[in-house]
């Protein structure tokens, strides 16, 4: 990777390791993840439940629950290491320079606080705005995220809004302070498909309008295809593949990515008799096998895969497509 490549990075995570303090001793749930987001880019983070995708993002903001700790690694955001920052400075970053949108808009909004007040909160705190200005800005934000009648909606409580509307409010809160980075953790998983289309469309528009970077965490590969510029695929707490979106879908390299792509039926393909599927189940966090975590389910597994952990290495000439797989790397050398 070139020097220039590093310069435009907004978020640069290196070797991030997260452990859970379990009854049976510490268990590694995120194992030395490297990922970065450049300015203006949308990064899709894809993985199944328990792969550590949400924990990774929460650990960046040091929002991890008790008993879960970052044990090593750094996370540079705009030139500062989030892991070393003082709690005070970090609070300025949270909700200020980095906006969050969570999966469940019902439980992530405070049910006893009016929507308007919740949007004003970060403005009052981070921007030191007056109450009046904050309310004006809140109306603007609600209009921006496409909520009709924003003046009246300010006084609504979360339960008075539909799921789609609540998620729009969450996004408005995330955007309140013009963040440089918006982290969206499965923001449409709880929503219906027509509402999901609305939200995806909204985020795409906002990103080009506001010029921010977006990290979109999801389990849905199809969704990420139309949304992201680059995709990181996680499996059992490790990055198995990192590629520009076109390259990933045109030329998936890691056997897990390939298996995942093959196992999702699509609307346009003619239906096959049986879906191809990946046998077995992902390992539980902290009970990963030695070597490559995917090896027990992998059709290409070799002896070395059960012994050593593969590193994420470039597999395309310009180096933007990377995969952590001995078989892929071996095939590449042979070619």
């Amino acid at each position: 990777m070139t020097a220039q490549d590093t310069k435009e990075r907004l978020l640069d995570v290196k070797g991030l390791t997260v452990e859970i303090d379990g009854r049976r001793g510490p268990a590694v749930v995120v194992d030395g993840i490297d990922l970065h987001v450049t300015k203006g880019e949308t990064l899709g983070v894809v993985g199944e439940s328990g792969c550590g995708k949400s924990l990774t993002m929460l650990s960046l903001m040091r929002l991890l629950p008790n008993k879960i700790k970052v044990t090593s690694g750094s996370a540079d955001f705009d030139g500062q290491d989030l892991q070393k920052m003082s709690a005070r400075a970090l609070r300025k970053v949270r909700g200020g320079e980095i906006g969050f949108v969570f999966q469940d808009p019902m439980t992530s909004l405070n049910p006893v606080m009016r929507v308007g007040d919740q949007i004003c909160e970060p403005l009052l705190y981070h921007r030191g705005m007056s109450r009046q200005d904050a309310r004006k800005r809140a109306v603007e934000l609600l209009r921006l995220v496409g909520i009709p009648g924003p003046e009246e909606r300010l006084n609504a409580y979360p339960h008075e809004l539909s799921g789609g509307m609540r998620q729009r409010v969450m996004i408005a809160i995330g955007l309140a302070c013009d963040p440089k980075l918006l982290i969206a953790d499965e923001p449409t998983t709880a929503l219906d498909v027509t509402i999901q289309a609305q939200i995806v469309d909204l985020v795409k528009q906002l990103r080009s309008k506001l010029g921010m970077s977006v990290v979109w965490i999801t389990h849905d590969l199809a969704l990420i295809a139309g949304l992201a510029d680059r995709v990181v695929v996680l499996y059992a707490g490790t990055v198995v593949e990192d590629a520009p979106v076109d390259a990933l879908f045109a030329n998936p390299s890691h056997p897990y990515t390939r298996g995942l792509l093959a196992s999702i039926p699509t609307l346009s393909d003619a239906p096959a008799a049986r879906l191809s599927s990946i046998g077995g189940t992902p390992p539980e966090p902290g009970r990963r096998p030695p070597g490559c975590p995917f090896a027990p389910r992998c059709p290409l597994a070799m002896d070395i895969c059960r012994r050593d952990v593969p590193k994420l290495e470039p597999i395309s000439s310009e180096g933007s497509h990377r995969a952590a797989c001995f078989a892929v790397q071996k095939a590449l050398k042979a070619a």
């Binding site: 498909v193 027509t194 289309a197 849905d220 590969l221 199809a222 139309g226």
Partner: peptide, 27 residues
């Protein structure tokens, strides 16, 4: 038609060129 149009597809090229019909409002 709207429902089918809202379903994302695992194909970035097709997604980019797709004319999506987005339904207004909620159920």
């Amino acid at each position: 038609k709207a429902l089918l149009s809202a379903v994302p597809e695992a194909d970035p090229l097709r997604e980019r060129n797709r004319k999506r019909q987005i339904l207004e409002g909620d159920v």
